[in-house]
Nucleic acid binder design. Structure first.
Lengths: 109, 109
DNA sequence: CCACACTACTACACAAAGCGGAGTACTCCA
DNA sequence: TGGAGTACTCCGCTTTGTGTAGTAGTGTGG
């Protein structure tokens, strides 16, 4: 099974969840996601997701120079983002529950 | 959050799980999925998934006439399908676990 | 008898989203 | 000077679920 297909729609949620623990820039969010167990996430996917969420009005954004490399574009949750995170979490939990029920092998009656 | 995006990659798994409980034809699989809680699945998606899984060699297929309507194209799991179901279930469970950990709000230390 | 609903499937074009690859650019180190 | 690590952008590709339309069979209500 291809892990990348599972991420569809869920990467948004994962990125929002990571940002709940503090503002972060793309490369950093990528590291945090991989550390959390999403090891196969591609960098372009994370940058794309951040851009999309920002454009959707769920994130704030500010650029900060770094002394150890290129500038960093930080993103953080705003109210819309927190609401989206809460709502998406519910949707995800419900969906995951449905799937886990479906996956339980039925005993012969 | 769009439920349809969550289905990506998971619909295969859901269809395989439903077929584990007995052979079924497209319209029937659709009903079983909806009854299981996947209410927003579109019919074209199910037919497409069945075709894809069949072409991938995970399903057997045979046509049977029906007295209450058009003919029915039945699908059933073969060894490849059962293996795929087992493997995909593992992948899904691991993925869902990872996500649930990520979604837990961290307490201030 | 005709319209409609339900069943059952196919085909086609479309859209969303993750990915690979290339490119840019900065810092540090061998 | 040239790699490695950091940090980001852009483009085109692929997969996959969806909407719409079309075909076709059965049964039912006006």
């Amino acid at each position: 099974m291809d892990t990348s297909q599972l991420l569809k729609g869920v990467l948004d949620l994962a990125v929002l969840a990571v940002l709940r623990d503090g503002d972060g820039y793309g490369y950093d969010v990528l590291r945090r996601l991989r550390q959390a167990g999403l090891e196969d996430v591609a960098d372009a996917s994370v940058y794309g997701t951040l851009r999309r969420l920002f454009q959707a009005g769920a994130l704030t954004s500010y650029v900060q120079p770094s002394e150890e490399g290129p500038h960093r574009k930080y993103y953080g949750l705003n109210k819309t983002g927190r609401d989206l995170l809460a709502q998406s979490t519910k949707t995800w939990n419900h969906f995951a529950d449905t799937m886990s029920v479906l996956l339980v092998e039925k005993e012969a009656a």
